[in-house]
């Protein structure tokens, strides 16, 4: 049972992700450089945050063509759990593994703060340890995190229950004020229709130990790990 943490030139949350799995969960996890063309020996994939290829052209636009993305797309198609965090979410959208895109924050500012999220659905490899309606405290840190999809796609992902997390206020309500970046429908994280690929802007990798401010992220990784074990 082994988790791959992908590394692109410019990834900068790879160490956080690796430590979350190794120290937070005692799991086996290793880096996988983006030039690799095989995922052999791995049972789950983490695409970490950062600024792959300096965010040149568009966030994630160049990383999606890296050699490692070919086996990632194949493994994702075969049902392997894949989580993309922040820049990882942007890469998954650019690769067409998740619908929609992430735009410049509506304020044009980089936002770096704690956010509150409400779990909107169950029945994914990432949420087995959580309850629908539960509020999670996870930090966000991004300049391009405004989730966008056209009306048809948006209606489709809502109808298929693919919205996993929404930004909410302290009362758990979806409000415009609680929306840090202008995401449509306050969307903070979505999954694909088969529900084995999760993309989210907030960082569970920065919330797996009380010493760093929150432990709410560890349940997401633990759920993913347990699913990967079960699928093995």
């Amino acid at each position: 049972m082994r988790i791959a943490v992908l590394q692109f030139p410019g990834s900068n949350c790879d160490q956080d992700c690796l430590r979350a799995f190794r120290e937070g969960l005692g799991a086996e996890a290793d880096y996988l450089w983006h030039k690799n063309t095989s995922l052999s020996g791995f049972d789950g994939i983490v695409i970490p945050g950062g600024f792959s290829y300096g965010d040149y052209l568009r966030c994630g636009a160049i990383a999606r063509f890296s050699p490692v993305m070919k086996p990632v797309i194949e493994a994702a198609g075969a049902g392997m759990p894949v989580i993309g965090i922040c820049n990882g979410f942007q890469i998954l959208c650019e690769a067409g593994l998740l619908p929609g895109a992430l735009l410049r924050n509506r304020t044009l500012h980089f936002v770096c703060k704690m956010s509150l999220l409400r779990l909107e659905t169950e029945g994914t490899p990432f949420t087995a340890r959580l309850r629908k309606g539960q509020i999670l405290r996870l930090p966000i840190a991004h300049g391009e995190g405004a989730y966008y999809a056209n009306e048809t796609i948006l209606a489709d992902i809502e109808a298929h229950d693919q919205v996993i997390f929404r930004y909410v206020d302290a009362f758990g309500k979806v409000t415009d004020q609680a929306n840090p970046n202008g995401s449509l429908h306050n969307i903070a994280g979505i999954c694909n229709e088969k529900r084995n690929i999760l993309g989210m802007m907030p960082h569970p990798d920065r919330a797996w130990d009380q010493r760093i401010g929150s432990v709410d992220g560890i349940s997401i990784f633990r759920s993913m790990l347990e699913t990967a074990v079960a699928l093995r």
Partner: peptide, 8 residues
């Protein structure tokens, strides 16, 4: 595929 993102 590369220079633009047809979604946006």
């Amino acid at each position: 595929d590369l220079l633009s993102n047809p979604v946006i």
